[in-house]
Amino acid sequence: MTYKLILNGKTLKGETTTEAVDAATAEKIFKQYANDNGVDGEWTYDDATKTFTVTE
């Protein structure tokens, strides 16, 4: 399945997608991606749209 991440960081904003077997796997990938890019904030997930959002 395709999952989407919306980044609302102070210095980085944008979107990315990943292919993952489930939401938990996608979350791990996205949290590593956000960490690698210096984004740390409040996480939400919308199962209907398979979208994670992180807001600093």
Rank of each mutant, 00 (worst) to 15 (best):
M1D: 15
M1Q: 14
M1Y: 15
T2L: 15
T2N: 07
Y3I: 02
Y3N: 01
K4Q: 05
K4R: 13
L5N: 00
L5T: 01
L5E: 01
L5D: 01
L5Y: 02
I6T: 05
I6G: 02
L7S: 03
L7R: 02
L7P: 01
L7W: 15
N8D: 09
N8M: 12
G9I: 09
G9V: 12
G9Y: 06
G9L: 13
K10N: 13
K10A: 12
K10Q: 12
K10W: 10
T11A: 14
T11P: 04
T11M: 12
T11E: 08
T11Q: 10
L12H: 13
L12M: 13
L12I: 14
L12E: 06
K13Y: 12
K13I: 11
K13M: 08
K13L: 08
G14V: 15
G14P: 04
G14Y: 15
E15T: 11
E15R: 07
E15G: 06
E15S: 06
T16G: 04
T16Y: 14
T18P: 01
T18M: 08
T18K: 04
E19P: 06
E19S: 10
E19Q: 15
E19V: 15
E19I: 11
A20V: 04
A20M: 02
V21I: 13
V21E: 12
V21Y: 07
V21M: 12
V21D: 12
D22W: 03
D22Y: 04
D22M: 04
D22A: 03
D22P: 01
D22S: 07
A23K: 15
A23F: 09
A23V: 12
A23T: 11
A23G: 05
T25F: 07
T25A: 14
T25E: 15
T25Q: 12
A26F: 01
A26L: 00
A26H: 00
A26N: 00
A26D: 00
E27M: 12
E27Y: 15
E27A: 10
E27R: 09
E27D: 05
K28V: 10
I29F: 12
I29S: 05
I29K: 07
F30R: 00
F30P: 00
K31D: 03
K31G: 04
K31V: 07
Q32K: 14
Q32Y: 06
Y33E: 03
Y33R: 03
Y33V: 06
Y33I: 09
A34G: 03
A34E: 01
N35T: 13
N35R: 15
N35W: 14
N35Q: 15
N35E: 15
D36K: 10
D36R: 10
D36W: 07
N37L: 15
N37F: 14
N37V: 15
N37D: 03
N37W: 15
N37T: 08
G38Q: 08
G38A: 07
G38M: 07
G38Y: 07
G38N: 10
V39W: 14
V39H: 04
V39G: 03
D40Q: 14
D40S: 14
D40W: 13
G41K: 02
G41M: 03
G41L: 03
G41E: 01
G41P: 01
G41R: 01
E42G: 05
E42F: 12
E42N: 11
E42A: 10
E42R: 08
E42Y: 13
W43E: 00
W43V: 02
T44V: 11
T44S: 15
T44E: 10
Y45G: 00
Y45W: 05
D46T: 05
D46R: 04
D46L: 04
D47Y: 10
D47F: 09
D47L: 07
D47G: 09
A48M: 13
A48F: 12
A48Q: 10
A48R: 07
A48T: 12
A48E: 12
T49P: 02
T49M: 06
T49R: 07
T49W: 04
K50L: 12
K50D: 03
K50G: 06
K50N: 08
K50Y: 11
K50S: 06
K50E: 03
T51H: 03
T51N: 02
T51A: 04
T51W: 02
T51I: 07
F52L: 01
F52Q: 00
F52N: 00
F52E: 00
T53D: 02
T53K: 06
T53S: 07
T53V: 09
V54Y: 03
V54A: 03
V54H: 01
V54D: 01
T55Y: 06
T55W: 09
T55H: 07
T55G: 05
E56Y: 15
E56K: 04
E56N: 05
